[in-house]
């Protein structure tokens, strides 16, 4: 009896992510959900620009690689082109909460019937560790070398809280993948987000707190606890909007 094996939702390609980067776990959870829902054959994934730009090599479904920040708009087009396709975007914090803020807010406002997987690791990974909109106060990065000074560069963006004020948003949950229990919860949230789409309930977004050992300057193991001690404080886990659950 197989307890655990690789999902068919992922291709055979090896992931390019750094050792211990939890992007890989999030990829797997999305892939597992798509496989278990039996929708891989009608799923169109939209990759963004950042460490996860190569996700079009990893998800075992048709993919479109979008310009930085524009994945929700591309996904809007793809979904409107074939409404019975399952359309998702996979975006990092720079992509979704910096350059793509307008696309994020407005695809939510339109309650676009898509699923957004938002990976928040508080840094720009691909380009070598610069400050992101979600970089924590005092957090040192390549472009906040003395620690993020909120009096100078302002405060991190709390996406779930922000979008919870957007009426079009149907389901918003923040999860983390820094331990097995959290990973199980994260999968439930991702599954819920995809089911929402399949049931035509509009815009769903799952914000997944994730590690970046390389640019946090920590070992993969230390990064797990840093996330817990620092990110979970600033970004509390939980459901921030569940329009249809409230109705039940």
């Amino acid at each position: 009896m197989v307890v655990f094996e690789k999902t068919k939702g992922l291709t055979e390609n090896e992931l390019h992510y750094c050792p211990g980067c939890t992007h890989g776990i999030i990829h797997r959870l999305v892939a597992e959900c798509l496989e278990e829902l039996g929708v891989l054959g009608k799923t169109i994934g939209v990759a963004s620009v950042g460490c996860s730009v190569f996700s079009y090599n990893y998800f075992n479904c048709d993919m479109i690689q979008a310009a930085h920040g524009r994945a929700p708009a591309v996904a809007t087009g793809a979904k409107r082109a074939n409404p019975d396709n399952v359309v998702f975007t996979y975006q990092g914090d720079g992509d979704l909460a910096a350059i793509g803020t307008a696309e994020t807010v407005h695809s939510a406002a339109r309650s676009e019937n898509i699923t957004v997987i938002f990976v928040n690791n508080a840094i720009y990974g691909m380009t070598g560790g610069q400050m992101a909109p979600t970089t924590l106060p005092n957090q040192v990065t390549q472009t906040s070398p003395y620690g993020r000074d909120v009096t100078v560069v302002g405060y991190p963006v709390k996406v779930c809280e922000m979008l919870s004020q957007v009426d079009g948003a149907s389901y918003l949950e923040r999860v983390a993948v820094n331990n097995v229990a959290n990973i199980r919860k994260a999968k439930k949230a991702i599954m819920r987000a995809f089911k929402n789409q399949i049931e035509g309930k509009g815009f769903s977004l799952v914000e997944v707190l994730s590690t970046c050992p390389t640019n946090w300057g920590l070992s993969p193991k230390e990064a797990l606890s840093w996330l817990n001690e620092n990110m979970e404080k600033y970004y509390p886990l939980g459901v921030y909007k569940d329009k249809y659950k409230e109705e039940k």
Binding site: I64, A66, A67, A73, T76, G77, A81, A102, H106
Partner: peptide, 24 residues
């Protein structure tokens, strides 16, 4: 018909539809 939030979003919506093989 969709009025996008910006011309940038509009052209990217076109990219989404065009990727799916439809005239847009």
């Amino acid at each position: 018909f969709l009025q996008a939030e910006s011309e940038i979003a509009a052209i990217n919506m076109v990219i989404g539809v065009a990727s799916c093989g439809k005239r847009c």
